[in-house]
């Protein structure tokens, strides 16, 4: 029996960490994601752009206390991709 293919967008530690956090919270800002993932600013920024380009997250830029604030939330497409990914890795583990 063939294994389900793993989504290359999500099969990356930082991108998967971000999506997992955004599954749990309704929306999270850049600093929240930075603190929880332990990533560097540059790397997180690059991976957020990739997730956004894939349509998995929506990014809103605003200001909080006069500082730029990047707010991220998972899209329905991102949620469905995450569910498919979890299903796929479970199928690997069940073999």
């Amino acid at each position: 029996m063939a294994f389900a293919p793993l989504d290359p967008v999500l099969h990356n530690q930082l991108r998967l960490a971000v999506i997992s956090l955004l599954v749990a919270v309704e929306e999270g800002d850049f600093n929240f994601l930075l603190e929880k993932t332990g990533a560097t600013r540059g790397n997180l920024s690059v991976q957020l752009t990739k997730l956004k380009e894939a349509g998995y997250i929506a990014v809103t830029k605003s200001f909080k206390d006069n500082y730029p604030n990047t707010l991220c939330r998972i899209t329905p497409q991102g949620l469905s991709a995450f569910e498919q990914y979890v299903k796929a890795i479970k199928s690997y583990l069940d073999k």
Binding site: N12, L16, S20, L21, L93
Partner: peptide, 22 residues
């Protein structure tokens, strides 16, 4: 955070992030 991931590592990471969010 750029090493190749095994399915076990993926699940562990998801669980760890869900706990962090909690």
């Amino acid at each position: 955070m750029e090493q190749p991931m095994t399915p076990e590592a993926s699940l562990r990471l998801i669980d760890e992030m869900l706990q962090q969010a909690k």
